[in-house]
Write a protein that binds this DNA or RNA. Sequence first.
DNA 1: CGGTAACTTGAGCCGCTTCAATCCGCGTGG
DNA 2: CCACGCGGATTGAAGCGGCTCAAGTTACCG
Lengths: 215, 215
Amino acid sequence: MTEHDLGVLSAAAVIVRKLPRQRFIDEGAEAIHFFTMSEGTARIFKTLADGRQQLVSFASRGDFLGLAVASRYAYSVEAIDAVSYCRFSRPDLRALLRDFPDMEKRLLEITCHELILAQEQMLLLGRKSARERVASFLILRISRSAARGLEPTHGIPVSLPMTRSDIADYLGLRIETVSRTLSSMKQDGLIRSDASAHGVLIANLAALDACAAGA
Amino acid sequence: MTEHDLGVLSAAAVIVRKLPRQRFIDEGAEAIHFFTMSEGTARIFKTLADGRQQLVSFASRGDFLGLAVASRYAYSVEAIDAVSYCRFSRPDLRALLRDFPDMEKRLLEITCHELILAQEQMLLLGRKSARERVASFLILRISRSAARGLEPTHGIPVSLPMTRSDIADYLGLRIETVSRTLSSMKQDGLIRSDASAHGVLIANLAALDACAAGA
DNA sequence: CGGTAACTTGAGCCGCTTCAATCCGCGTGG
DNA sequence: CCACGCGGATTGAAGCGGCTCAAGTTACCG
């Protein structure tokens, strides 16, 4: 979603702020609203009866939430850090799509792109080993991390603002496995520690890439 | 996709037939065409370098193939049984969308629905046990199997036209695990054998449902 | 500094995979 | 009509990758 679209949308929408851990979409609830993220990061996830969770994706600025063909939300969404978003009703969305026909095309493009990402994630969840999953995740995160003044001597910086628990729920692993895998990758010189646990430096991108691809 | 849409599309398209095992979309190839399935069943899948496969979905009559935001196909597609489909070029699709504006809305709806299915599958692949996966799969197949003259005394018939290998690749398991799980479900009275390996009868839907939901 | 939540590390276990041996169904040809 | 062959399915035994349970360690915040 472009900055221009966001502008148009926010004019018709209510702006809402949420603190970390607050939930603002509930899987199975009546789908009344649509949302576009304008600040922060949120976790989109599904839950099984006994509490097992699968994180379907991370949402950040520009992402579209509240997707539902039937009248109920297909997933829950919680703020990871401080989040703000635009909220608008289904009738308002319909009006917007009428007034800005290009937006429908864009919406289709976005949804197709999400579907492709979802399929890539199915490959990861169904067929990749723990190490391959973590490698894939780190590579995915490169684009999300501002590469300001990159210094190849130390490695490509990757920020991991979410907890290990979020990463584990995203990769279909347990937190211990994520932690162990990161340690083992440090051992093998693939990555290096950044300050704190919420960031790493990629020391050997080629090797990490090969690992992510399943080689 | 409705029968009416299929009619409109087939008027502008080339109709092609494929025999079992023939591939007609190649992951990574230039995405020149779009496709709509008109007969048979196909496997949509992604592949890793060493041959591991993840089946992303089964395609049958009315399903839309060739999705690609970038210019390359995101997955491969192969015929499972005898398949026929309509093929048309991207410019033709654009013309169709111009001439039938409602089709874009429908395309968006279809894609949203696929995305929701994909997310459900992520939950399955990331968090469900083998038994829960097979239970989920059988329940999913109920709707695909014509429930002609259902006889609750013998169980709800479910047809499994694909091989165990396809099921395994869809569920992120090995064929041996699928086979063992089905046997164990028979043992436990959840399902019964139909004639041949390509069909079962669901004997205890409630229990199977509970299992699929992770209870 | 104290307390808590997040992260790391270790040891043992379990579910799924791997490897291997049948078994079954079906089409083919003698 | 039956023997044969072949691909798919089933079953068995052993191994291993990721999970579970548990004990530290570190980072963060009052």
